[in-house]
Design a protein around this nucleic acid. Sequence first.
DNA 1: GGATTAGGCCTGTCTAGACAGGTACGCTTG
DNA 2: CAAGCGTACCTGTCTAGACAGGCCTAATCC
Lengths: 238, 238
Amino acid sequence: MPQSPPTTARYLQVKHYILQQISGGNLRAGARVPSENELVRELEVARMTANRALRELAADGVVVRVAGVGTFVAEQRVHSHPLEVRNIADEIRSRGHEYEAKIVFLGPVSASREIGERCGVSAGARLDHSLLIHFEGGVPLQVEDRYVNPTVVAGYLRNDFTRITPHEFLMQAAPLQRAEHTVRAVIPDGRIRRMLKLDASDACLLIRRRTWAGGRIATAADLYHPGSRYELTGALQG
Amino acid sequence: MPQSPPTTARYLQVKHYILQQISGGNLRAGARVPSENELVRELEVARMTANRALRELAADGVVVRVAGVGTFVAEQRVHSHPLEVRNIADEIRSRGHEYEAKIVFLGPVSASREIGERCGVSAGARLDHSLLIHFEGGVPLQVEDRYVNPTVVAGYLRNDFTRITPHEFLMQAAPLQRAEHTVRAVIPDGRIRRMLKLDASDACLLIRRRTWAGGRIATAADLYHPGSRYELTGALQG
DNA sequence: GGATTAGGCCTGTCTAGACAGGTACGCTTG
DNA sequence: CAAGCGTACCTGTCTAGACAGGCCTAATCC
């Protein structure tokens, strides 16, 4: 007879145990994770069960395993599925971290020539503008500098972007027709650098995104990520 | 006594077997994949071995498993990655500029542990290595640091890469099954910086690309672009 | 005929034991 | 002191057997 309700699989319990040790600060990056045999003794599981837990954590990039040596907490490196238009809040929460947003600016603006061009409106046209910082566990992970065309998507400014991300709102407000991305490496200017709390020598990944709805440009956004803490990944079927 | 050289793990052989059935057309999208017990009988492995193979294929999105029903070939991915696998020579020529490549290194190497891991071979295995600089109108636009698994794609080193790009050769030599990209912003080290003729303060876009053929990793490449002169673009249908 | 049930196949998980090969460290030997 | 060797520990893999629970179908019962 097994224990009363084996609600969650034991290998998941082992994964959870390790993840807790890491997020709780008991295990820092580079630290040695209990070996399979130690987990066998401590958690009373079979080695294959501990092995599966550690193997999956390695596949997830949480730990690094070296045959003959041991298992170690991986250096944190955030990666997201790329231009699969994804919601940064979900992304952060799926990693088990706390998500938070800070609103730097939110209001209507008059389009400059450059911004107007990017958004497909003439200079001087009214656009909704938001400037947010997205935090993962208190650490800034993205600066989102976004312009929305109010004649394509209405009501953008009426949102509380500490509760719903611009992406979430836009996805439900306007059916996404097409998106265009530009990815660049830049040395950020002082404003972005301060918001991301970066050194002068840090590189930044700039994702410039435009999305279309109803045949017109709905929104143009500049997403800045710290180069040292972020990467894009993706797969392609050929 | 095991078989003479147990070169590759048996669960990998099972994965390879399934992938061959799929890429060979024997198993189409939606088709039922042999059950674990069938694989046990057909390939003479333990069920746990067949289980691991199918479980990993499911994690890779190649198959879909339904408890109590069976395992099925996954439907083709709906959306493709915007970072299309492009040929840099075509890209440059399409802008009306002159393309030129300089070969810094070309030859066989023994895989370090890190490189072996990226290429899915054990440390010490032989890999073909090339290090090229691609020029647009005399200005360096990309440093391509590439490793090719000669057991997947043969004859890599016999090319004249001033006349054909590695990408061109690989596309015709091996049918691309899948590609994976990682995009990062980095401050390049001195070697890369010199090859790209960059200032110390310039950022670099690093595209790390791996491609699969026949279910195995065919090649892993690091593509460095000067942040000030390069950007990635792509579109996504949503 | 329609509802219920039993059996068979499937995935999902867990276990205990085994062998291989890599790595590090300390001891021994020259 | 340096080189080499043995040993202990680690990951990586494989196996055979077990039980649980989902799902489908076919036989059975009302």
